[in-house]
C-alpha cells in the first residue's frame, strides 16, 4: 500500500464564493482532527472532498494533495488502491442480501480474505447493544446495528491510512471504542462531530462556517481531562439506554 506521510487540504471558496480563510492545512499521519461547526457549515462537504481526493472539481473547489503531490486517477478511483475509508452519516443499506453475503462481497472487492467475515460481526457486536446475526438481512438492521457493522467493516475490510468519520454519535454505539478501533496506529483521522465526547478527543479541530474552514482550535489539557470524564458518562448512558430498551426500570444513577 501507498505510504502516506501527510495530506494537504488546499482551501477553496465558501458558499458565497469568497476564498476560504484557511488556505492550506497539512494533516500528518497519527493525527486525529475534529471538524466542528453548525448544521450547513460544510463539514460533510470537507469530508467528501477528502474522500474523493478533490481536484478543484467539487462545489467547494478545494484540492487535496497526498504527500504534497496531486494523486493519480488510479489512486482516486480504484477501490483496491483506495487510501480513504469513510464512515458517513448515511446509514442506509440498500442491498438486499444477508450480512455475511455483503461482507464476503466487500472483502472480495478490497482483495481481503473472506475469513475476516466472522471477526467483523463479532467486533460489531462489541460496539452495539443489539447483537447482529450473520444471516440477518442488511435492510432490517437498526441504525445502531448498521453503524456498528460499518465501523467494523471499515476497521477490517476497508483498512486504509486515511479514515473519515461523519457524525458517529447519531447511533447507539460505543463512540469512544469505535473511534479507537478506527484510528489505530499511524493513521490520518478526521471526525465530523457535534459531540463533545469525540470533539475533545482530537488534538486539533477545524472550525467550519458558511462552507469554509474558519480556524484551527488546539485542544487544552483541561479539555483532555474533560474528555475522559465525558467518556465515562457516555458509557453509562449506553447501559441505561439498553436497560430502558429492555423494559427495565431505572432505580438510581451514580456517575
Amino acid at each position: 500500500m501507498h505510504i502516506i506521510e501527510n495530506i494537504t487540504i488546499i482551501g477553496g471558496f465558501d458558499k458565497k464564493g469568497n476564498p476560504e480563510i484557511i488556505t492550506e492545512l497539512i494533516v500528518n499521519k497519527g493525527e486525529i482532527i475534529g471538524i466542528v461547526g453548525p448544521t450547513g457549515s460544510g463539514k460533510s462537504q470537507l469530508i467528501s472532498d477528502i474522500e474523493q481526493l478533490a481536484q478543484f472539481d467539487t462545489s467547494s473547489k478545494r484540492q487535496i494533495l497526498i504527500n504534497g503531490k496531486t494523486p493519480s486517477y488510479e489512486l482516486r478511483n480504484n477501490p483496491r488502491k483506495k487510501m480513504v475509508a469513510q464512515l458517513s452519516q448515511n446509514m442506509n443499506f440498500v442491498a438486499d442480501m444477508t450480512v455475511t453475503e455483503f461482507l464476503t462481497l466487500h472483502a472480495k472487492c478490497r482483495g481481503k480474505s473472506i475469513n475476516d467475515v466472522g471477526k467483523i460481526i463479532t467486533l460489531a457486536n462489541e460496539l452495539t447493544g443489539e447483537p447482529i446475526k450473520q444471516n440477518d438481512n442488511l435492510t432490517i438492521l437498526s441504525g445502531g446495528q448498521s453503524r456498528a457493522l460499518m465501523v467494523a467493516d471499515v476497521a477490517i475490510i476497508s483498512e486504509s491510512p486515511i479514515v473519515l468519520i461523519d457524525e458517529i454519535e447519531n447511533a447507539g454505539i460505543k463512540k469512544y471504542e469505535a473511534l479507537e478501533l478506527l484510528s489505530g496506529q499511524g493513521k490520518i483521522v478526521l471526525v465530523v462531530t457535534h459531540d463533545p465526547v469525540l470533539a475533545l478527543t482530537s488534538q486539533k479541530r477545524i472550525f467550519m462556517k458558511n462552507g469554509a474552514m474558519q480556524g484551527i482550535i488546539f485542544s487544552t489539557v483541561e479539555e483532555r481531562i474533560a474528555s475522559e470524564k465525558l467518556n465515562i458518562i457516555d458509557k453509562n448512558m449506553l447501559v441505561l439506554r439498553e436497560k430502558v430498551r429492555a423494559g427495565e426500570t431505572i432505580t438510581n444513577i451514580n456517575f
Binding site: 477501490p79 442491498a95 472487492c109 467493516d153
Partner: peptide
C-alpha cells in the same frame, strides 16, 4: 453514491 455506504459503493463498482 452519497446516499449509500462506502462499502456498498465499492461493491456496486465491482
Amino acid at each position: 453514491g452519497d446516499i449509500i455506504s462506502q462499502a456498498e459503493r465499492e461493491i456496486f463498482r465491482e
